[in-house]
Design a binder for these strands. Structure first.
Lengths: 249, 249
DNA sequence: TGGCCTGTTGCATCCTCTGCAACGGCCATT
DNA sequence: AATGGCCGTTGCAGAGGATGCAACAGGCCA
């Protein structure tokens, strides 16, 4: 809508990939160097961009401060966090919390597994939306036309042989998830990783966030993981109660 | 420098204070509502701003994602290196850079002493975790339970008579280091080698790396080495500032 | 129903952003 | 030491885009 601002903001994800110099920025934006310079300067004045000693540009401290405030405004996270930690201390596996926003599902919290196993997931990073248990939970709560609109816009990358193959299969899966009130991802993203998740609902019953427990099949089989479903659901329900103001405490 | 971008970016700190509607944003920016609308739309398209169900705007989760990605792509080593070289050229002694990862402390950079004295340390090699100054700095920043858990799992090899003898002594040392913001290793690894080190912190204040200066006592006494503490700390602080994207302005 | 408030759109005007070209500093090459 | 190339920077004129106005639309409350 605003070309100038649009260009300026396009610089941010570009710099998130790593430092870049003026020429590289200008080239990626497809504008003249002088234009890129002025945009960068403006971003710099606002502290969103930092100029390191080799003159290259990077994202600046103010961005981190803003991000911090942004995440603090997501108060689900605050409320959920202690519950997630408690669940993790009980069962040991990695626990995730995610929200849906603007056609994306984002991890907003994560409690690492106590087992020495690395999982590829990052707080703040978009989730593999077509396969992740949390994504299914969040999308399943949307209205039918919204679900369909999104499902048709998505790509369906075949991470593994068990990945959701296409829009039709995805919509069917969402219907199932919607009805049963929980979701799984059995090797759909990484062959050896299974997840089981449950929705967190606000006072109006709508799903505001989703949580999941993930574990590699070398530690627990899918069947064993499913035995954790009740405790996962109880945790999600406890968070929902507290979030919607029905805290027993 | 760019009025339009300047105005658009001014919206972000404004929204950081809390959600606001179109009228409020326009008023604070001192522009027409239609102008504010277009700016907000552009921010919205980039995910920096989110429109909640009551139509008010607040900061978007993409901000968080950007910051997270930026942190991941940040390379402490790359940023620190020129500073380490500069320090080395000033004082001559060996300079080390180390990080903590998976229960280990690893050297990730080293600038050799200009004196003809070789030290036994190698980039990529685990550090003597119970005695090295950099190890103390990195562990001191962990939470109390984490520190204790690690301290109790460690072995305490008696490299010299001044090596840290046991977990209790180590934890006590970590507390001291945590409070004073710097650390030493006075002959704890090799009888004749002394080190003094300082922490490097990220935007959130957490210790992301540690650096140290090492010298054999045949070249400088421990007391003389300690006089270098201020310059070591200043270097560490300069690296921290650059790493966290804080403009020196 | 009517009034009020907020968000939205089309449009003409004018501002401000853009790209160009020229300059200056830095580094490496000869 | 001199030279050429590269990168960042600046002044300027022209044009494209942002701005504010005014009118419209939709929701809410009296």
């Amino acid at each position: 809508m605003s070309q100038t601002v649009d260009r300026a903001l396009s610089i941010l994800p570009l710099l998130a990939e790593g430092p870049a110099d003026l020429g590289q920025v200008a080239e990626r934006l497809d504008v003249h160097k002088s234009t890129a310079l002025r945009l960068l300067r403006t971003l710099h004045e606002h502290g969103l961009v930092y100029r390191q000693s080799d003159q290259r540009y990077r994202l600046g401290a103010r961005l981190f401060a803003l991000a911090q405030e942004a995440v603090e405004n997501l108060d689900v996270r605050e409320i959920a966090h202690p519950h997630l930690v408690e669940l993790n201390s009980k069962i040991g596996h990695t626990v995730h919390l995610a929200v849906y926003e603007e056609n994306e599902v984002l991890y907003i919290d994560k409690v690492e597994s106590r087992y020495p196993v690395r999982m590829y997931s990052r707080i703040g990073k978009p989730v593999a939306i077509t396969v992740a248990a949390v994504a299914k939970l969040l999308l399943a709560d949307l209205s039918e036309p919204e679900r369909r609109a999104i499902a048709e816009k998505l790509d369906y990358p075949q991470y593994t042989s068990r990945s959701t193959p296409n829009a039709a299969a995805f919509l069917k899966e969402l219907t199932v998830v919607r009805e049963q009130g929980w979701a799984t991802d059995l090797g759909g993203h990484e062959e050896s990783i299974n997840c089981v998740g449950a929705p967190i609902r606000g006072a109006d019953g709508r799903v505001v966030a989703a949580m999941s427990v993930s574990a590699p099949s070398v530690v627990v089989t899918a069947d064993e993981l499913l035995t954790l479903l009740p405790v996962v659901r109880r945790t999600a329900e406890a968070i929902s109660r507290e979030y919607s103001g029905n805290a027993p405490t």
